[in-house]
Simulated scan of single mutants.
Amino acid sequence: STHKFKQQVYNVLNSYFLDKGPYLIKKKQIIYLDKSFDSKVLMDLEFDTKSDAHYHQGKIYVLNIDHQLYTVDTSSKEIIRQDQQIFNVFTFFSIIDDFFIFNDIDLNLFVVNLMTLEKFKTDFNNCYRLYTFLDKVLLHCKVEQQFWFIVCQFNNGQLTELKRMQGIIDQPMFHSNNLGLQKIYRKNQIIDLSDIYSEMIDKSAKSNQFYHPIYGATFWPEYSQKQSRLYLQTLIGKLEDDEFVQKLEQPEGKRKLLLQHSNEKLQKSNKLRFPNHIKLFAANCKVKKHIKESFLKLNLIDLNAHLVVDDFE
């Protein structure tokens, strides 16, 4: 898409398979764009936000400018204030699988299991910002008076550091997740969480977001094709156990994507459960194919040329 936003918007991450998704947040409203790229209001939030929201299991998690976390019920549209003893989010949060990751007012990094509400502190502190993409987490932390980008692997609530690079994050891109891309300030260099590498780029700054029909808004549309494909693959897997999404009537394009994933998963499952049966079936198919091919060849042979007739005179 070449649609460019004139003002900053925030994404509701993982909202593509919601009705009319993906969703965006503009000022105090959750919106979507129609086919003409006109904004349509889904609901009013009654408060301002300053970071991306996240959809998870029938709820949209959204943080207001006063550091209070709310959830929006996607069925009833009810807005519920969350317990600040558990979700004492300061500026940034994200969700991977069933885990809620955030920095608190003291800039310590915490993880909450959304299924059990168990909360635990990680080993990372002085974390000013965090972003996630697929199973990776990008932290922007201050270490010994220097700012560092720290890339971590996230697995079942645990963060394992993979790489770190010194640098300051660039504005205004840092407000958004950007499909796992962030730019280092005063360097023509971006960090790509999908490949865990930094790449030199031509342009030093980005001032506008562009619309992407799967993800929402990004400052880096030139990377959207690769990033959105990876994002979509991961998202479909996440939604297998999502009762709310599974009950929705999806338009044809989205329905085909979900069915394709289900079929691929079933095929993989059958290979694991019945490996010998599948091998035998495949072998039988090869034998049948060979017999059929041999029979067809036989029909092409001039049988008279191969008959020997005894002539008794």
Rank of each mutant, 00 (worst) to 15 (best):
S1Q: 10
T2Q: 14
K4S: 12
F5G: 06
Q8L: 15
Y10P: 05
N11F: 13
V12Y: 11
Y16K: 13
Y16C: 14
G21N: 08
P22S: 07
P22G: 09
K27F: 13
I31D: 05
L33C: 05
S36H: 14
K40D: 02
M43K: 08
L45P: 11
L45I: 14
E46M: 09
D48M: 13
K50S: 12
S51I: 08
Y55V: 02
K59P: 05
Y61C: 00
N64D: 14
Y70Q: 01
V72D: 00
R81K: 15
Q82I: 10
Q84M: 09
Q84S: 11
Q85G: 14
I86P: 05
T91V: 07
T91I: 10
I95D: 05
I96E: 02
F99I: 00
I101Y: 07
N103D: 07
N103I: 06
I105D: 06
D106V: 07
N108D: 11
L109C: 10
L109A: 01
F110R: 04
V111P: 01
V111A: 01
M115R: 12
L117T: 10
T122E: 02
T122F: 01
D123A: 11
F124Q: 01
F124N: 05
Y128T: 00
L130G: 02
Y131L: 03
T132W: 01
L134F: 01
L138H: 03
H140S: 01
C141W: 00
F149H: 04
C152I: 05
F154S: 05
F154I: 02
F154D: 04
N156I: 07
T160E: 15
L162E: 15
K163C: 04
R164V: 03
D170S: 15
Q171C: 06
S176I: 13
G180M: 10
G180P: 09
L181N: 03
I184E: 09
Y185R: 14
D192T: 10
Y197E: 14
I201H: 01
A205G: 00
S207I: 07
N208R: 08
N208V: 00
Q209H: 07
Q209C: 01
Q209T: 00
Y211Q: 06
T218K: 06
W220L: 13
W220I: 08
Q225Y: 15
K226W: 03
K226F: 09
Q227C: 12
I236L: 07
G237K: 12
G237Y: 07
K238E: 09
K238F: 11
D242Y: 07
V245A: 06
E249V: 14
Q250Y: 14
G253Q: 14
N263S: 06
K265I: 04
L266C: 08
Q267H: 01
K268V: 03
S269D: 08
N270W: 02
R273E: 08
F274V: 02
I278A: 07
F281S: 09
A283G: 05
K289Q: 11
E293Q: 12
E293N: 10
F295I: 13
N299T: 15
D302Y: 09
D302V: 04
A305H: 13
A305T: 14
L307N: 11
V308R: 11
D310P: 11
F312Y: 13
F312W: 10
